[in-house]
């Protein structure tokens, strides 16, 4: 219930309706959206029981390692009820046509694949918030100073997922494990998205806000 309460408010992209749908405008909308979502994500992380007790350096490393997976999992969760549509924000939905017009078809297809995976598993809200917190604690441990404390937090969250699923889905004893097995695909997809933004940054055609750039540089 603490994780459910920590969930950020709905987010709106408010894209400029006067601008034509081009790849640069679409990427600008997504970068601006991601920048604001990063602020919300940092605030969200602080509400995860135990996160704020970690050292500041470890809090930073965890967020730097996992932010794209966290944002992507949010998009996936918002998109679950819709077929063929990615809900980046309440007012910014990308379908196949829009993805082609905006030059985002590759990202659209791999993210849709992820949505399909979670839809097949019928990921519910409680599982989503727990999985998202687990993703935060599952960043590269090589960069972590106090591995034991991060491990303790991760164990706590993994126990929460197992407890929840064994109560709610008694007929599916492997459900929690199946959810954890989706994490490699989430990481792989997040890497593709990060690469896409790195390329866009190198081309210099899309303006990016400072926090987004800072987090992108950490990857």
């Amino acid at each position: 219930s603490q994780l459910l309460m920590a969930e950020p408010e709905k987010i709106y992209a408010t894209p400029d309706p006067g601008l034509p749908e081009t790849d640069i405008n679409a990427l600008s909308t997504l970068c601006e959206l991601a920048d604001r979502e990063l602020v919300l994500t940092i605030g969200w992380a602080k509400h995860i029981p135990g996160f704020s007790s970690l050292s500041l350096a470890d809090q930073m490393s965890l967020l730097q390692g996992s932010w794209m997976e966290i944002l992507l999992l949010g998009v996936v969760h918002r998109s679950l009820p819709f077929q063929g549509e990615l809900v980046y924000a309440e007012d910014y939905v990308v379908d196949e046509l829009r993805s082609r017009v905006c030059g985002l078809r590759d990202l659209y297809l791999c993210t849709l694949h992820l949505v399909h995976r979670y839809r097949t598993l019928r990921l519910d809200k409680e599982e989503y918030v727990t999985l998202k917190a687990l993703v935060l604690t599952n960043a590269d441990l090589l960069r972590i100073e106090d591995v034991q404390s991060v491990q303790r937090l991760q164990d706590l969250l993994q126990d929460a997922l197992h407890d929840y699923d064994s109560n709610q889905y008694r007929e599916e004893p492997r459900r929690a494990g199946q959810l954890l097995l989706t994490l490699p695909l989430l990481r792989q997809t997040a890497s593709k998205v990060v690469l896409h933004f790195h390329r866009a940054r190198a081309q210099g055609t899309v303006s990016m806000h400072k926090l987004f750039l800072e987090m992108l540089e950490a990857k």
């Binding site: 605030g43 350096a57 930073m60 967020l63 926090l211 800072e214």
Partner: peptide
């Protein structure tokens, strides 16, 4: 941490 000023600041302070 110097390179990641905004993240550092947002974690240290309230939002």
């Amino acid at each position: 941490q110097e390179k990641h000023r905004i993240l550092h600041k947002l974690l240290q302070n309230g939002n």
